[in-house]
Amino acid sequence: MDFLFDNERPIYIQLVEKLRIEIVSGKLRPGERILSVRELALNLKVNPNTMQKALVELENEGLVYTERTNGKFVTQNDNLIENLKKKMAEEKVNKYLEDMLDLGIDNKEALKYLKEIGGKF
């Protein structure tokens, strides 16, 4: 799990973002047990305290829960994951549309590009 950090943004926020993507994409499955804080931190080569902070944030969002003796798990609440996925996808789409507007390409035309090029994937 190699991961390049942007030193200009808080590391824990970048960890939260990375784990959200893993959950939304299904790389981490609903109900799956997450590695311990220390293991995760060492895998990503970050400070365990920073990792801990990121997991607390994910717990606050309900994406992760703790079973007292067994460790931390990914939520089994599919709605929550689905809603997050939708929200994240919307952000990406908005970003795409904004970038296209910067190029002088309106939404309608942007959609045309998407169909044309997206179709080749």
Binding site: E8, R9, P10, T50
Partner: peptide
Amino acid sequence: ADELRNKENAS
């Protein structure tokens, strides 16, 4: 460290 990055928007 993270609070400082957040506050200053820099490394």
